[in-house]
Design a protein around this nucleic acid. Sequence first.
DNA 1: GGGGAAGTTTACGTTAACGTAAAGTATTGG
DNA 2: CCAATACTTTACGTTAACGTAAACTTCCCC
Lengths: 132, 132
Amino acid sequence: MSKKQTYSIGELAREFDVTTRTIRFYEDQGLVAPERRGQTRVYTPADRVTLKLILRGKRLGFSLAESRELIGMYQPQSDNRSQLLALQEKIHQRRVQLDQQLRDIQLLQQELDNAEQRCLESLNQLESKENV
Amino acid sequence: MSKKQTYSIGELAREFDVTTRTIRFYEDQGLVAPERRGQTRVYTPADRVTLKLILRGKRLGFSLAESRELIGMYQPQSDNRSQLLALQEKIHQRRVQLDQQLRDIQLLQQELDNAEQRCLESLNQLESKENV
DNA sequence: GGGGAAGTTTACGTTAACGTAAAGTATTGG
DNA sequence: CCAATACTTTACGTTAACGTAAACTTCCCC
């Protein structure tokens, strides 16, 4: 009864709207490491999650190196004190950056509101002139 | 009494922590168009704001082309109806994307919280073992 | 058994966003 | 006067993140 859910490269490519080339490139970069059935790559749900994280990173403007680092943060895997402290610091730095991004987004949203407002006003002015 | 505040390329580079090469590159791409005093570029406060917007865009992962488009949105400059409607649509699309980014950030923040928590637990375990 | 459809490897090509170096001009302080 | 500092143009180099093409295998279907 073990759920042996797996995915082909094509399935994942379709689901995430990327090319298979892209997924293979991520493998080249050591971001995913699918098993093989013969030659063919076989992806596990864990691989799928990893892809999801990478693509979320992309939406936030992260490089693959940054995404790799972030993914690494989720599995501490370390009983080394200094490494844990370094990890803690990295987490802190990421949070600082995310906070900045959040502020940037809020400002931009505000500006879009204003731009839309001016846009609507221009449209209204056009309409009123047309109706003379 | 007119405030003739201007900036040199070096000043702006220092303020925004980029190289002068970068600023000249943005000019090449038509993002800023400083005046000249002889050969030398002279930047106005408006140019400075433009630079600020570009760099904020970079923090959000925007390409220069996207930032240019965004900056263009702030000056409607158009009495053309179809252009205004197109602008409205662009604004809408940006908002959709920003909403997605905002959700991505919130998820990531949550995950960083968890990662930090596990990090602290690992550190605590190390400490307790040391104190035997 | 021929031909799609989906998978594979290898490898060269491409774009964005600058970096970096060379060679020249203009101003300013000791 | 000359040397440092800040500016300029021109131009080739670099990195990330894939795109694209070629040539091959495997499987399935009618």
